[in-house]
Design a protein around this nucleic acid. Sequence first.
DNA 1: CTGAAAGCGCTAACAG
DNA 2: CTGTTAGCGCTTTCAG
Lengths: 346, 346
Amino acid sequence: MEWDDCTVKASTDSASARPTIYDVAHRAGVSKSLVSLVLRGSPNVSDPRREAVQAAIDELGYRPSRAASALAANRTQSIGLLIDDFHNPWFVEVLRGLRSVLDPAGWNISVADLQLEALSGRNPLDGFLAMHVDGLIIAAEPHAAPPLRNLDVPFVVAGVRELDSGPADVVASDEVQGAGLAVEHLVQLGHRRIAHLSGTGGSAKARLDGYLRSVRAAGLEPLVVGESGDTTEEAGYTAARELFSGHDGVTAVFAANDTMALGALAALKEHGLRTPEDVSVVGYDNTPLAESRYLDLTSIDSHNASIGSEAARALLGRIAEPSAPRRQLLLAPSLMARGSTAAPPS
Amino acid sequence: MEWDDCTVKASTDSASARPTIYDVAHRAGVSKSLVSLVLRGSPNVSDPRREAVQAAIDELGYRPSRAASALAANRTQSIGLLIDDFHNPWFVEVLRGLRSVLDPAGWNISVADLQLEALSGRNPLDGFLAMHVDGLIIAAEPHAAPPLRNLDVPFVVAGVRELDSGPADVVASDEVQGAGLAVEHLVQLGHRRIAHLSGTGGSAKARLDGYLRSVRAAGLEPLVVGESGDTTEEAGYTAARELFSGHDGVTAVFAANDTMALGALAALKEHGLRTPEDVSVVGYDNTPLAESRYLDLTSIDSHNASIGSEAARALLGRIAEPSAPRRQLLLAPSLMARGSTAAPPS
DNA sequence: CTGAAAGCGCTAACAG
DNA sequence: CTGTTAGCGCTTTCAG
């Protein structure tokens, strides 16, 4: 992609002072108020005037000052996105979804992650509150996030279901259903001994629920390991190793996420078991990891971009109507079948 | 980690209006200017006064308005970080490094990625310029970034060497040296036929240079594939497949990055070759991928956190002294030896 | 539809 | 060391 200079409008020949709304008005031969109206796309401006103003804006390379408009309007037209960890790339799609609805409306998004924020020792929302965001998207496990109870800025929780805290707008994936998809896929392939690698946290819990429900619905015996551990690769490795040391006859493993599935793959390799010939493996989240040709991991996709766009719409709605009733939206996930699953050995 | 309410200071019982510097001054029995001085940590304030002001700030839950101070001071105390792609996690360590020096000084950092920014069709720096950042860290390949030539805001290029464009402050890793470490590691293990998976882009080029230099220094014959392709997993796969279909006798592969190395692993697996017994593989970047127990990939670490902190210092320096001579800083990388490398088959 | 006037909350000279 | 005085660039009534 090529970026030409027209939009950057670097240091002009004249003095370095950035043009103000005043300069634009002067050049267009109108008053500052009119420029302000054009900027905000008011319909009450005649076409010739509008064009004159736009021309002046372009010629001057005018760029409205966010600071000034925030101060005057008492709103920043910006929202904050709080995520768990920049290393966990699920937020990228969420952000893309957010932007697809927020960008056209002229909103600014800033992102903070709990891991990095924790270094500073401040409340992770401090930065957002200092910059006076008009709204917040919380895309982190509520238990890890700061208390949201009596926050006076509109917010919506995205991606994770707020299990414990007070009522909030929530846009999330139906993870119980997603886990069901994984189990049903394995059942249809002919597996009868399907183990689940679980862990702590709201998502893991929902996925466990879905696993239990579907396994029982299929008339099978559940087998869960690692329920009280992390959801890291290491935890997946440990849990899977335990699985294949003790319980025999397991032909399929459903991991609470792709990272744990990676750990399971390591354990299988160590035990001399092949994937998918000996043991099928299913992950969750459909990360780039799963898509990788080397891993080629069957996984569940939560459609994070949709979660983002719906969350944006929900937030805009709440900002416009702070007292509207809370809404919770659950989106249906889908299965991405890949090479890590196959029929069990006969 | 527990966040208590003290810093959030949600809607107080009184009216919802946020306290201003004026309220603080009134409560502390001083003038607004004094409060402003305390805020900025001026030494010219008597201790009792300072404490009174601080107490008022705490009691009121006062939080200075960034918009107002930006407007009045004509600087935002914020810098922008431009990265290639949120999916490429190398920026996380850079950001950590940046924050380690910028946070204590009260700076705000906002991050934008070229991929997402491209969706909007705007110049990726537009958002930063609109919010009037005081400085910019460019952590993206210069050819992909918008033109920096006559940008009137101080910036430093981090992580990649600006090969083509004008003079700029640069803080980067010595990738030529890093590639040398990889090759020397393989040579010491006894490898004689060491192939390199390359690709386009400044980093890939530097790594290729380092490879060529070291291979020749060891008296070996260079063997490079994929030089004009991507640096993706798919490209690594294709290049490695070509390698093991045609050229025989290759016992070690040095990929331009970990992702390409992953592609190489897929190709090796397909050819029935084991890692490291038959073929050793070295990546670059020391991503979480490489650390993974399943992949356990020997890789080169660029010490990105140091790049971040040095870049921050460089930027602060340039902001303070815009006409200082340009400086380029190259940091030494190191080798992370793991299980994907071993002596060649005898 | 358009122009004038009054700040938003803070900083940065100054003069006390 | 402290208080006063002007704005920063924009939005928003409110009259023309």
